[in-house]
Structure formats: structure tokens, C-alpha cells
């Protein structure tokens, strides 16, 4: 095993995990909403970008923003429908509703895009960089840079701006925030739109690594689960650390122990942590 290569792989995987997870982390932190359609949103974004390239003939760098925009709009629609339950904080029903949405998207996408694996190709995926026997692609570099930029920008917005203060106050106590004249409805919609747009960006950058399927759904993003919970509910920095940590863990576990059981090992790790600390590692 080439340790340096595995570390690179871990960083590449980890930046993908963190990027796909970030929208969910923010949503969970601000609205306490678990979106079980997250994986299907990822799938939809990948297919929208693919369809834009295959049918509209646009190039990759236009297709990804189209997917981000489309998912953002979808986010407004979805959150609009769920608003009553969100305002009641009826979390049990919301979780089940998002499971229903996910199933709906999966069936709908299979109808719309067909059941065959498609190749969603980024031009950067094939341009490799080599240092001796270590290699990675420009797509990996782009993913890493975008992840760091997005996390940095998000941290600044949440912690250093008026907008961030609004989101944090609604997260802390929605009723009290409303008493102070904050429009919690708008904050919830904004947060949900951010989740959808962020997962679309994640799909645009990460999905080109392998063929895409309408049935991939949760399996593709299942590890972001671990990132969200391990990083601590709603913690931006925690998610970034957890994302990279999990990336390194997966790369090393896959290389050293067994690639087949990597997901199971990551979840076993999550179970152990949750038994010890039910609110996640980053919990206050």
C-alpha cells in the first residue's frame, strides 16, 4: 500500500463527503429537520446536470449551475409544502414525509431518465496530475477548493453577519425569534433552499466519479449521514473535520482491512460514538 496515495484519496473522498453533507448539517441545525430525501436530491441534481449536457448540449460548467438552480427552486416548492409541519416542529411526521418524497423522486426519475446507468462526465475528470507514483485529477482539486470555499463562506455568513444571526436565533428558539419580529418562515425556506442547492453542487462535483443511476439515491450519500451526526448537529466546522476524518478512515480501512465492509465499518463507528455521546462528537 502506498500510504501517501491513500492519504490523498482520503482527502479527496473527505472533501466530497463534507460538501454533500453541509446542506444537511445546516438544515438539521437550523430547522431540526432530517431530510431523508437527501440522497434522491443528490441523484436528481446529477441527472438534471447530465440531461442538460446530453439534451441541451451545454457544457459541464453550465450544466452544474443549472442543476443547482433547479434544485434550489425544488427546495422552495418542497419546503412550501412542509411549512405547516415545520412550524409545528412535528419532527416525526416530517421525517416520514421526506422519506415519501425520496421514494417519489426515485420513481419519478426512473420514469423520466430511464433505468440505465448514464455517464455524467466532467472534462476535468480525465486530466490527471502525477507526482511520482501519486496521482489525482483536476476534478479532485476543484472539489477540494470548492468545499473549502463553501465552508469558509458559510462559516463567515453564519457567524459574522446579520443573516447568520437570524438563522442562529431561529435555530435556538423559533417562537422567541418570531416574538422579536424575525420571519421564521423565510429562514426555514432559505435554509432548505440552501440544502438543496448545496447537495446539487456536491452532485455536480462528485457524481462524475462514477456512472449515475436513478436508483443510487441514499447509497451514494449514505456516508454523509455519518458526517452530519459525528460532526455534531448543525456544526459547520465539525462537519468539515468529520468529513475529512471519515474520508481518511474510509480510504485507509478500504486499503488495509476490506473494501466490501467500509460502509459497515463507518456506521459501526457511528453507532459506537452515539452510544457514548448521543448528541455527536461536536456537541456542546
Amino acid at each position: 500500500m502506498n500510504l501517501a496515495q491513500q492519504l490523498i484519496n482520503g482527502l479527496v473522498l473527505g472533501s466530497g463527503y463534507a460538501l454533500i453533507a453541509i446542506g444537511w448539517t445546516v438544515l438539521l441545525g437550523a430547522a431540526r429537520l432530517v431530510n431523508f430525501a437527501h440522497g434522491q436530491l443528490y441523484m436528481l441534481a446529477a441527472f438534471i446536470a447530465w440531461a442538460a449536457m446530453a439534451h441541451l448540449g451545454v457544457n459541464y460548467f453550465v450544466a452544474v449551475p443549472i442543476a443547482v438552480l433547479a434544485l434550489g427552486l425544488l427546495g422552495i416548492v418542497l419546503q412550501g409544502m412542509m411549512l405547516r409541519l415545520v412550524m409545528q416542529q412535528n419532527l416525526t411526521s416530517l421525517m416520514i414525509v421526506t422519506l415519501g418524497f425520496g421514494y417519489l423522486f426515485q420513481g419519478g426519475a426512473a420514469r423520466l431518465f430511464g433505468g440505465n446507468p448514464e455517464r455524467f462526465i466532467s472534462p476535468l475528470q480525465t486530466s490527471e496530475i502525477r507526482f511520482g507514483d501519486i496521482w489525482f485529477t483536476w476534478q479532485d482539486v476543484l472539489t477540494l477548493v470548492c468545499t473549502l470555499l463553501l465552508f469558509g463562506a458559510l462559516w463567515l455568513v453564519l457567524n459574522r453577519t446579520r443573516l447568520g444571526a437570524l438563522v442562529r436565533s431561529v435555530a435556538e428558539d423559533p417562537k422567541l425569534a418570531q416574538l422579536f419580529g424575525i420571519n421564521a418562515t423565510l429562514v426555514y425556506i432559505g435554509v432548505f433552499v440552501f440544502e438543496c442547492a448545496a447537495v446539487a453542487l456536491g452532485a455536480g462535483l462528485v457524481a462524475p466519479r462514477s456512472p449515475i443511476l436513478t436508483s443510487m439515491g441514499f447509497d451514494e450519500v449514505i456516508l454523509t449521514f455519518v458526517v452530519v451526526v459525528l460532526g455534531g448537529i448543525g456544526s459547520v466546522v465539525g462537519s468539515l473535520v468529520a468529513g475529512f476524518g471519515l474520508g481518511l478512515f474510509t480510504a485507509l480501512f478500504g486499503a488495509l482491512v476490506s473494501p466490501a465492509y467500509t460502509t459497515a465499518a463507518a456506521f459501526a463507528l457511528l453507532l459506537v460514538v452515539l452510544v457514548a455521546r448521543p448528541r455527536g462528537l461536536g456537541a456542546r
Partner: peptide, 21 residues
């Protein structure tokens, strides 16, 4: 059809909870 049934099942699940919790 299989995919159509998925749409029905998912839509029913979401719609019931959204409209008549």
C-alpha cells in the same frame, strides 16, 4: 409499473401527512 407504483406510494405517504396528519 414498478416506477409508477413508487411514485404512488411515495406521494401517498407524503400527501397524507401533509394534508391530514
Amino acid at each position: 409499473g414498478g416506477d409508477g407504483d413508487k411514485i404512488v406510494l411515495g406521494a401517498v405517504l407524503a400527501a397524507i401527512l401533509l394534508l391530514w396528519p
